[in-house]
Amino acid sequence: MEIPVGQVVVHYVEHGSGRPVLVLHGAGVDHRETEACFELVLEGVEGLRRIYPDLPGMGRTIAPETLRSADDVLDALLDFADEVIGGAAYLLIGHSAGAYYAQAMAARRPAKVAGLALVCPFLPGLRDVPAHRVVAGSGEIGDDVFRSYFVIQTPEMLERYERHVAPAAALVDQAALERIGERWELTPDHTPAYAGPTVVVAGRLDSTVGYAAATDLIDHYPHASLSVVDDAGHALPHEQPELLRALLTEWLARVERSS
């Protein structure tokens, strides 16, 4: 499906009906990665409408020349949520760079976000990022991107990568991402911290964003749970699906109680 929001036509897929759940992927991929990972968690929960957009410049969402900063992308995502979801309060999940935008969306429109989940979040001020280390597998299968992304390098993880991650590479508009990346840092928001049910999940072996900066969020969000998962890297949603399911199920229960 596609929907115009300003000068951006956003491509997205959705499943189910009920309370909306907006799921944002990271950089260099498209909706297929988050769909493959988070449908394992969400498709068994009744009453959820799961929405997976391609972010601008990735997948089938073209980034026009007018998008020149992360702030422009944020505005497009807020407009997309307004158009597709309307006035209903929605759940918001982000992985990697998607989590960066999810934080800003919750800060900008807290009344519209019923719950916030941040998985391997990309954050300003990253620190103590560990060196990449393989914990399962020979470290000799797959391409260079797979070997630098996954810490569990089994044939099963390679199959997931080749089905749900690698195909997006051909659709990435590198020029657009570079243009936006020149102004990648969002304008600081000085509103009070988002106060709804929040969960932060980080991989202890995440050599892309680390886990140290994510731990700071426990003091930022007044109703946040934090989990740092061993034997998981930036591909945590692929590598630890059962644990992620348990953490998000608990988060969904807190969302239900709060509403």
Results as ranks from 00 to 15, higher is better:
residue 87 G to E: 13
residue 25 H to I: 01
residue 253 A to F: 04
residue 77 L to D: 07
residue 256 E to K: 12
residue 59 G to L: 06
residue 250 E to L: 14
residue 252 L to Y: 09
residue 43 E to H: 11
residue 113 V to D: 08
residue 167 P to C: 00
residue 182 E to K: 12
residue 207 S to W: 06
residue 16 G to M: 07
residue 116 L to C: 00
residue 215 T to E: 02
residue 161 Y to V: 10
residue 134 V to E: 10
residue 242 E to G: 10
residue 136 A to F: 02
residue 152 I to P: 02
residue 192 P to N: 09
residue 81 A to D: 09
residue 126 L to D: 01
residue 213 A to H: 01
residue 147 R to K: 05
residue 87 G to D: 13
residue 33 E to R: 12
residue 83 E to Q: 15
residue 201 V to W: 10
residue 150 F to P: 04
residue 14 E to W: 09
residue 130 P to C: 09
residue 138 S to L: 06
residue 212 A to E: 01
residue 188 P to L: 13
residue 16 G to N: 10
residue 188 P to V: 05
residue 28 G to Y: 06
residue 35 E to Q: 15
residue 225 S to V: 08
residue 5 V to E: 12
residue 7 Q to T: 10
residue 16 G to R: 12
residue 70 A to W: 04
residue 31 H to D: 10
residue 201 V to F: 11
residue 89 A to G: 15
residue 7 Q to P: 10
residue 24 L to A: 13
residue 239 E to P: 04
residue 111 A to V: 07
residue 209 V to G: 02
residue 142 G to C: 07
residue 138 S to D: 10
residue 2 E to W: 00
residue 222 P to N: 01
residue 154 T to F: 10
residue 78 L to V: 12
residue 107 A to K: 00
residue 128 D to L: 05
residue 53 P to N: 03
residue 50 R to V: 13
residue 168 A to L: 04
residue 29 V to W: 05
residue 17 S to A: 15
residue 256 E to Q: 13
residue 168 A to Q: 09
residue 168 A to S: 15
residue 176 A to F: 02
residue 256 E to A: 15
residue 236 L to Q: 03
residue 94 G to Q: 05
residue 126 L to C: 04
residue 161 Y to H: 02
